[in-house]
Each structure stands twice: as structure tokens, then as C-alpha cells.
Design a protein around this nucleic acid. Structure first.
Length: 360
RNA sequence: UUACAUGGCUUCAUAA
């Protein structure tokens, strides 16, 4: 079973749900081995990630109906709770928690963390605070907040520029409680301060991070780069980028490249933007993804270079295995509408319709 | 062998 599960998990994480489901039916028909709770959990996870929560719920039903077979565990329910929360369906998530309690399965810290995050993402900070408060009282839900819970709350507060003071309080509170902020916690807070325009404090946090033996990572630098670009400090951004490679010895990832490319396009530095995109394409550690293409295509369009944009649009799949999605079509369509013959745009719309995409 | 937190784009909506 373990072998089957490992395969299914890998398939799910690769987005190959259909194949994972095939392996699952094969496993069901197999006379020697049968699916266990791990098999169900990883499939349910895969289905949730690909927005197929209905099907995930069907699998849960299957587990609950068939007596004496495979019983859902904390993981099963928590995965579903997380799936619903990420989709903004907090009520459904709560219903799942209700179900698990009925089945005598105790929600654990991960279950609550998902719910906390769900509230935060859904702009229900008040609810998140309430739950977090409950978690802090040892008698109530039976699990105290951990580093992740704090990071989630800090992120929630940071969504609102006016609340980063509160975020900072939480940061000190966790240290007081003996929890060590990790790089995610730092990055979250640094991003919050940068977004609020409090760059000095952000820099102090970076320093504090180093002092505590947490070296800034790719995400930390991406955050700094992004805010430098947004403030039109492209030269500084480029200098920092070079230092990231030479001094910090970090390998830029797609997101970091994309941040820079976007910043360069938006600053009108056409040649530098092109050059950075070529660098990305030549870097064997990274591959441009759909977001990168959207950035470059919209950058080209913004500067009237629609033909070049269209060329890239048509070649991206062959070059990087990146299939244009609806957003990508819309970006090139906007370029056409602005710069080209309406008939060409019309043709594009028809192509979109054939693919089931709608123009916005 | 399975679940939970941080960084990238476009449009739109909301908020102001």
C-alpha cells in the first residue's frame, strides 16, 4: 500500500489527479492490498487543491458509510477543513469540524490553523481573533497556538496596513511565550511593514532575523525587491539582486525573477526587462511559468509591442510547456484591442470561446 | 507514505 500511496501522492502534487484516481481504482480492485487512510487522505487533498471539493466529500462519505472499512482520521477532516477555508467557504469548513467532533475525532492544531487562516483570508479578522483567543486559553479547545498559528495571525493583521502594530505585538507575545519566530514569521512581518511604508522598521527586522541566526531567504529578498520596485528604486533593486546571488549565495527562483521583470517593465526599462527574461530562460534552475508570461506579454503590450507579445504567446507552450490560460488570453486580447485591427481581436475572442474561456 | 502559515501578473468587485 505504501508504494501505491507514495505514487498517488506524487501524482496529486503534480496535478495529475486523474492518474491518481486511476491508481486508486486499481488499488481497490487489487486482491492483495486495499486502500488505507493514507490513500484516501492524499486523494482528498489532491481533489481539494484542484477545486473538486464535491468529489472529495464523496470520498469522505464513502469512508463514513462503509462500516469497518477505512475510518477517516484527523488528517482526513483537517484536509477538508483546509480545502473549504482556502476556497473561502468557512461555513462548510465549520460543518466538517462539526462532523468530526460527532465522530469523536478531536480537531488538532492544524485543523484550527486552517480555520484561522480561512478567517484571515476572508477578511474576518474578528472571528480569527476570537478563535485565537480560545486557543490561548488552555481549557477551551485543547491546543495552544504554535509558531504557525502566530504567523497566520500576523499575516492576517498585516493585510491591513493600520494593523501592523498589532502584528508586532503578537510577534513579541510569541517570543514571550517561548516560541521562536521562524523565517516565515519574519517574512510575513517584514512584508507587512514594507506594505505600510515603514521601511526602516522592515530593515530592522531583517537585521534581527540575521542576529537570530535566521538567514534571510529567497522570500525575504523577494519581498524587499518587490517593494523597491514599487517605490521606483529599480537601481537599488538591481544592485540587491546582484548581491543576492554573489553575497547571499541564493538561487533566484521564478517568483523573484518575475518580480524584477515586472518592475522593469513597469518602469519602462524595456531592454533590461527583456534581458532579465532571457536570463530567466537560460537559468537551468528555473522555468518561466504562466505568471511570468503574463507579466512579459502585458509588458510588451503596454509598450505597443503587440506583435512580439503575440509571438511569445504562441510560442510559450512549446518553449516552456506553459499552456495559456484565460488570464493570458485576456492580456493579449487587451493588447489587440488597444493596438490592432478589431477583426484580429474578434478572431481571438472566437478562439477563446472555443476553449471555454470568457473575455473580461 | 498523508493535512495547516510568508513573496510574483492581468481584469473585475469591494472598501475608502
Amino acid at each position: 500500500v505504501t508504494t501505491y500511496n507514495t505514487v498517488m501522492d506524487a501524482l496529486c502534487k503534480d496535478g495529475e489527479i486523474a492518474k491518481a484516481l486511476d491508481v486508486f481504482s486499481e488499488l481497490k480492485e487489487n486482491k492483495k492490498v486495499s486502500p488505507d487512510v493514507f490513500s484516501y487522505n492524499c486523494l482528498i487533498h489532491g481533489l481539494c487543491v484542484s477545486n473538486r471539493r464535491e468529489q472529495a466529500m464523496m470520498l469522505l462519505k464513502e469512508m463514513m458509510v462503509e462500516e469497518g472499512k477505512v475510518m477517516p482520521d484527523v488528517f482526513t477532516f483537517s484536509i477538508l477543513v483546509d480545502g473549504f477555508c482556502k476556497a473561502g467557504l468557512v461555513l462548510e469548513a465549520r460543518a466538517v469540524i462539526g462532523k468530526m467532533i460527532q465522530r469523536q475525532v478531536r480537531p488538532n492544531i492544524a485543523t484550527y490553523n486552517s480555520l484561522l487562516d480561512g478567517y484571515c483570508l476572508h477578511r474576518q479578522l474578528e472571528e480569527a481573533k476570537r478563535l485565537f483567543g480560545l486557543m490561548m486559553m488552555s481549557s477551551s479547545v485543547g491546543c495552544r497556538p504554535n509558531v504557525r498559528s502566530y504567523s497566520i495571525m500576523i499575516n492576517g493583521y498585516c493585510k491591513d496596513e493600520k494593523m501592523c502594530e498589532e502584528a508586532k505585538l503578537l510577534f513579541y507575545d510569541m517570543i514571550e511565550k517561548g516560541l521562536r519566530p521562524n523565517s516565515v514569521t519574519f517574512n510575513t512581518l517584514i512584508n507587512g511593514f514594507c506594505s505600510a511604508g515603514r521601511h526602516t522598521e522592515a530593515q530592522e527586522l531583517v537585521k534581527k532575523m540575521c542576529d537570530q541566526g535566521q538567514a534571510p531567504d529567497v522570500v525575504t529578498y523577494s519581498i524587499l525587491l518587490k517593494h523597491l520596485c514599487e517605490r521606483d528604486h529599480l537601481n537599488e533593486a538591481m544592485i540587491l539582486f546582484r548581491e543576492i546571488e554573489s553575497i547571499a549565495q541564493l538561487k533566484p527562483d521564478v517568483q523573484m525573477y518575475s518580480i524584477l521583470i515586472d518592475g522593469l517593465w513597469k518602469a519602462g526599462k524595456v531592454e533590461e526587462a527583456r534581458a532579465m527574461f532571457s536570463r530567466l530562460c537560460e537559468d537551468e534552475h528555473v522555468r518561466p511559468d504562466i505568471v511570468t508570461y503574463i507579466i512579459v506579454i502585458s509588458g510588451l503590450c503596454r509598450h505597443g509591442l503587440v506583435d512580439e507579445a503575440y509571438d511569445l504567446f504562441r510560442t510559450m507552450e512549446a518553449a516552456s510547456g506553459c499552456v495559456p490560460n484565460a488570464d493570458c488570453y485576456n492580456v493579449i486580447l487587451r493588447g489587440f484591442l488597444q493596438w490592432k485591427d478589431p477583426l484580429d481581436a474578434k478572431e481571438l475572442v472566437q478562439e477563446m470561446e472555443r476553449k471555454g474561456f470568457s473575455a473580461d
